[in-house]
Design a protein around this nucleic acid. Structure first.
Length: 152
DNA sequence: GCCAACGTTGGC
DNA sequence: GCCAACGTTGGC
């Protein structure tokens, strides 16, 4: 089992939006970055826990936990010319983009802000706090996970 | 295969 | 709204 962190802009899709979905589950479409894709396609497995992170907002923060409930399958929005995620280089017989399904687990009573995370010496290796890191999906070590968890 | 130009991300 | 950092594109 591996631990993860996934970013989302709360204006587009927040943890409350996820909790309001049928079965509190949603497919993670629209990832168009190869590194992030590779992690979803090859490494994320059913049951893996995921920190849910709000980015591009007033207070960037980890706001809760989700888990992977369906392993990778083709991101069908890439096949749809009507979608803003359409990519004519992705074909159903050889998909370029993949996604997983995640399910709501928990919303923290108190979110853990990026500012706080940056001040934790235990997290200096976490990609999220590194300068210029734009990865929307990243691995979290077990030690990092437990450390962050201990604040919730 | 190099690299400049461009677009995007995302914190501040 | 600004801008640094980064990934991608496309001409050569």
């Amino acid at each position: 089992m591996k631990y993860w962190l996934m970013k989302t802009e709360p204006d587009a899709f927040s943890i409350d939006d996820l909790a309001a979905r049928p079965l509190q589950t949603e497919h993670w479409d629209g990832v168009r970055n190869y590194q992030a894709r590779n992690m979803m396609r090859d490494e994320m497995k059913v049951g893996d826990p995921v920190f849910f992170y709000h980015s591009g907002c007033k207070t960037p923060a980890i706001v809760g936990i989700t888990k992977v409930v369906k392993a990778s399958y083709p991101d069908h929005t890439a096949f749809n010319p009507e979608s803003k995620y359409f990519d004519d280089k992705s074909h159903p017989d050889n998909p370029r983009w993949w996604m997983v399904d995640v399910q709501f687990v928990e919303k923290f009573k108190r979110e853990i802000t990026l500012r706080e995370l940056k001040n934790m010496p235990e997290l200096t290796e976490l990609a999220l706090v590194k300068k210029g890191c734009r990865l929307s999906i990243m691995p979290v070590s077990e030690a990092e996970w437990l450390h962050i968890r201990s604040y919730t």
